[in-house]
Design a protein around this nucleic acid. Structure first.
Lengths: 198, 198
DNA sequence: ACCTGAACACCGTTCAAGT
DNA sequence: ACCTGAACACCGTTCAAGT
C-alpha cells in the first residue's frame, strides 16, 4: 500500500523516540518504511522541512488558551505546557531549538504569551519582547535539563550524582527561573513604556 | 614544517569566519592545512573536542572580573560581554550553544555571575540558578539575533525589513530582557530563601 | 612523534526511468 | 501520482604503515 505524508511523519517520530535525533536519518527512515531514500523526497522537499513538521507536532497543543484566571498563573501554565511538550519526546527540546532557530518567535505560543502580557498591562512591543525572553528561557532550560537526563540514563552516573537525589529537582529549578521572570514582568507592568523606539 | 595544535585551532576558526559552521568539516580543514584528514586526529581526538576548543576560545575573556561597582551593573556588563563574544565570530552563538549543551552551566562565567548574586544578597543555591537563567537568556537571544543577521545578509531582505530599520534594534531588545531579569533578581534579593531543597 | 594512504561505514539529495 | 535504481558529492573516524 502507498506511503502517505503522515506515515513518513509517524515513522520519523518513532525513530526519534527509539534512537534519538542523531540517528534520525533519511536513509534509516526510508529503511524502516521499506522504501528507497528517494521516495521520502516526494513527500517532503528536504530533511529540514521534515524536522520542522516534527517540531510542530511536538508543540501542537502547547498553545491552547490558558485555563487560569490571573495573568501570572496563565504565563506559568503556558510555560509549563511548553516544557512538558518538549520533554514528551526524546531530544524534543534539542530538535525544537535547532529547527526553530528564528521561528519560535514566529509562533502561536509567542502570540499567546504576548496577549497575556498585554492584558497584564504591558505595551504591545514590550509584550512581544517579554514573550521572546520567556521562550528563550524555557527552551534553554529544557534543552539543558533533557541533555542531563539522557547523559545520566546513558551510563556515567555515580550514586549521589543521580538525578533522583539532585537537589533542587528539575521542576523546582524551572519554577525558580520562571518566578524570576514573572517578578520582572510584574515590575514592568507597574511602569509605563520601558522600551524606546528610535 | 610541522602542524601544531594551535595551527589546527587557528585554521578551524578561519574556516568558521569565512564559510560558517556548516562548512567547518574535518576534511575541509585538513585540505586548508595541506594535510590528510587523519592528521587532525593526532591533535584532537574528535571533532566535538575541536569545536569545544573553539567555543572556549570565543568565550575567553568574557569571564573577566567586572569593572563596575553595583551588582546590577556588574551582571549587565558580564551579560553584554558574553553577547559581544558570541557575536564576534560567524555562527559563534550557535557553536557555543550546541557544544555547551550542558557545559555553559559548568563554566567560569557561571561562577562569576553567581558570585555577583551572592554579593547582592542571594543564597548560594539561588545564585547558581539565577546564573543559569541569565545564561539561557543570553544564549537564546544571541543565537536568534545572529541567525536573523545572517538570514538578512544572505539575500531575503526587503527594504523595510532590513535590520537597519528594525525597531527596536537588537541591543535594545537585549537590554529589555536583561532589565526584566535584573528586576526579578532585585525582587529575589529582597526576599529570603526562595528555593526549597527537598 | 607526527603524518600518509586507504579504507570503512555512513550521510542528504537528485533524477531518469519505471509502474 | 508515486516510487525505484543508481548515482553524485560529500561526511567523521580508524589504523597499518611510513618517516
Amino acid at each position: 500500500m502507498q506511503l502517505r505524508r503522515q506515515d513518513v511523519l509517524d515513522g520519523a517520530i518513532a525513530i526519534l523516540d527509539e534512537y534519538g535525533l542523531a540517528d534520525l536519518t533519511m536513509r534509516r527512515l526510508a529503511t524502516s518504511l521499506h522504501v528507497q531514500p528517494g521516495a521520502l523526497y516526494w513527500h517532503f522537499p528536504n530533511k529540514q522541512t521534515l524536522l520542522g513538521a516534527i517540531a510542530d507536532h511536538i508543540l501542537s497543543g502547547a498553545d491552547a488558551p490558558s485555563t487560569e484566571q490571573l495573568w501570572d498563573a496563565q504565563i506559568s501554565q503556558i510555560a509549563h505546557r511548553l516544557r512538558d511538550a518538549l520533554l514528551s519526546r526524546r531530544d524534543g527540546a534539542e530538535l525544537v531549538a535547532s529547527t526553530y532557530a528564528s521561528r519560535l518567535t514566529t509562533n502561536r505560543i509567542r502570540e499567546r504569551i504576548a496577549a497575556v502580557c498585554i492584558r497584564a498591562g504591558l505595551p504591545r512591543v514590550d509584550s512581544e519582547l517579554t514573550a521572546d525572553t520567556l521562550l528563550y528561557y524555557v527552551l534553554g532550560h529544557t534543552v539543558d535539563e533533557q541533555a542531563r537526563l539522557q547523559m545520566d540514563s546513558a551510563g556515567a552516573l555515580t550514586a549521589d550524582a543521580s538525578p533522583m537525589f539532585e537537589r533542587p529537582d528539575p521542576t523546582s529549578k524551572f519554577d525558580f527561573g520562571l518566578r524570576l521572570f514573572l517578578d520582572g514582568v510584574r515590575h514592568a507592568a507597574s511602569e509605563p513604556r520601558s522600551v524606546r523606539i528610535r
